[in-house]
Simulated scan of single mutants.
Amino acid sequence: MGARQKSRTVLLTGASGGLGNAIARLLAERGDRLLLQGRNVDRLEQLRRSLTDPERHRVLAADLLDSGGRRQLMQMCREEAGLDVLINNAGISRFALLGDLADRELADILHTNLLVPMTLTRDLLPLLEQSPEGAVINIGSAFGHIGHPGFTAYSASKAGLFAFTEALRRECADSGVRVHYLAPRAVDTELNTPAVRALNRALRNKSDTPAVVARQCADLLHRPSGQRRFIGWPERLFIKINALFPSLVDSALSKKLPVIRRYAKQGDLSGEVL
């Protein structure tokens, strides 16, 4: 457990996806107890058995898009001895032009990436407030700060998640609960379809391994106050330029539209396991 004397109990959503898997492994190695949320019980159990001290961890199978599933998850968390950390990691993406997105796809992306973290956090705050190490980490994206063609719904959902995190951090300033926001650039996980991988190669977009992002996530848990953190260079620079001089980014991305449109026609729905 390193220098820490007390293990934390961590609820991790989307645990069986690529990034969730990496976060779970790292936190388990550091002595934390994981509540692993997802829909695929077999994948969750496989992950649990592979973790350090597997008997300490618990699988919480629930569909986050279903209100009944979320209520079941809430009840499971209340039955635990306590909850110290909520990591809102579950998410889905759709690489497609806006005109090719169906109503259901738009709703699922916004619901999964924004409304589910909001409702889970709201319902679990009373438990987190009872912990001296209470914390929330919302996993955002660089695309929440640089609206990118082909990712309109995903960009909107992550921009909303950032605003929610910022407002909640200020709302919880006197509660003791630390509220963090972590925005990776592209992460090499199953969230990326073959079309997204081809686009990244064509545009020479860089990506990070899940392990790199997991280390940043774990580091936030040691911070005494809520943080917002962006991963990747030059993406961090582009985010600042986009905030100050958006027309420059408009011009740069407009030149890439033919490539983006070509690969967007090959896109399909993918995501971390919920």
Rank of each mutant, 00 (worst) to 15 (best):
N242V: 08
C217V: 08
V259K: 05
Q216L: 09
V259F: 08
Q266L: 14
E235I: 02
Q266F: 10
N200A: 13
P224H: 07
P194F: 02
R201K: 04
L244F: 14
D188Y: 09
S251N: 15
E235K: 06
A195N: 04
K240N: 08
I241T: 07
A264S: 11
H222N: 06
P210L: 06
K206V: 05
R261M: 14
K265R: 13
N200E: 15
K265D: 15
G267T: 10
D250M: 07
N242A: 10
C217K: 07
R262S: 12
P246D: 15
P210T: 03
L244N: 12
I239W: 13
Q266W: 11
A243P: 02
A202Q: 02
Q266C: 12
S225R: 15
P194H: 00
S225T: 12
I260F: 01
A218G: 09
D208W: 05
E235G: 05
L269D: 12
L253Q: 13
A218L: 11
V196G: 07
I241R: 09
I231F: 02
S251L: 14
D268I: 15
F238G: 05
D208V: 03
Q227D: 06
P246R: 10
D268P: 13
L203V: 00
R229A: 02
P194W: 01
L221Q: 07
A211G: 03
A211F: 04
A252Q: 11
K240Q: 13
H222P: 02
D219C: 07
F238I: 06
A202N: 02
